[in-house]
């Protein structure tokens, strides 16, 4: 039997537990199965990033495609000592910025009326684990969460970007700095300003301590 092209290399069945970097090195050598696994692993998280940065809940599908097409086409540029998370975040962030620029509008504004209605379980803040023990507490929480969703959109872009990358995507200051292309101190400062903007946006709403 001729050697199989797609399945020519036998990959360990537990390769799904491999970290991102070895998988990316497999991609670098042309292994599309490793690319598939990275896509599966990273799609939800990057779709969240696109939603936060563009405000378009439907931006994820085509931006995800573009992101991983670039991962594939730029695979040679992935250094062996690099980490995958900041690398793929850089690609995704640049694509989101291009999208926002091409549409000639500020990111996130379009989503104001599209999602985020109080009580909606599909808003960003609907993802906060619900520890409310009474219907009243649950309703209050949903209202607060929807308000926080709005507040996040009102934060000026450079600050919101730092909040999204550090607080939502959980990147370190150094990784976020690499993604944005600024010093880590700048990320730290922007993050402080972003949190402060959020606090101010929530101030009118808050009547008690945050949950």
């Amino acid at each position: 039997m001729p050697e199989l092209v797609p399945g020519g290399e036998t990959v360990p069945l537990d390769w799904a537990s491999e970290p991102d970097e070895p998988l990316m090195l497999r991609v670098q050598s042309g292994d599309t199965r490793a690319l598939e696994l990275l896509i599966q692993r990273w799609s939800p998280r990057l779709a969240g990033l696109f939603y936060r940065l563009t405000g378009d809940p439907h931006a994820g599908d085509d931006l995800l495609q573009e992101t991983f097409l670039r991962v594939w086409s730029a695979r040679e540029s992935f250094r062996r000592d690099a980490r995958f998370s900041p690398w793929v975040h850089s690609i995704a962030r640049n694509l989101a910025a291009d999208r926002a620029k091409n549409r000639n509008r500020k990111p996130l504004h379009r989503a104001l009326n599209a999602v985020g209605a109080p009580g909606s379980t599909t808003t960003l803040l609907g993802k906060i684990p619900d520890h409310a023990t009474t219907p009243f507490a649950a309703a209050s929480r949903l209202e607060l969460l929807a308000k926080l969703d709005e507040a996040l959109r009102s934060v000026p872009e450079p600050y919101r970007e730092a909040v999204v990358l550090c607080d939502l995507q959980r990147l370190s200051y150094d990784d976020a700095a690499q993604v944005i292309g600024v010093p880590a101190k700048t990320v730290s400062s922007r993050l402080a300003r972003g949190r402060e903007h959020l606090r101010n946006a929530l101030a009118a709403f808050r009547s008690g301590p945050l949950p």
Binding site: S43, G60, L64, I128, P129
Partner: peptide, 24 residues
């Protein structure tokens, strides 16, 4: 604390359950 309570690895709104497959 409020922001960190959001799990951004969850499926965000507008993302179909099989978006990974569709992207693939």
């Amino acid at each position: 604390q409020l922001l960190r309570g959001i799990d951004d690895g969850d499926e965000p709104p507008g993302l179909s359950a099989f978006v990974g497959r569709e992207v693939m």
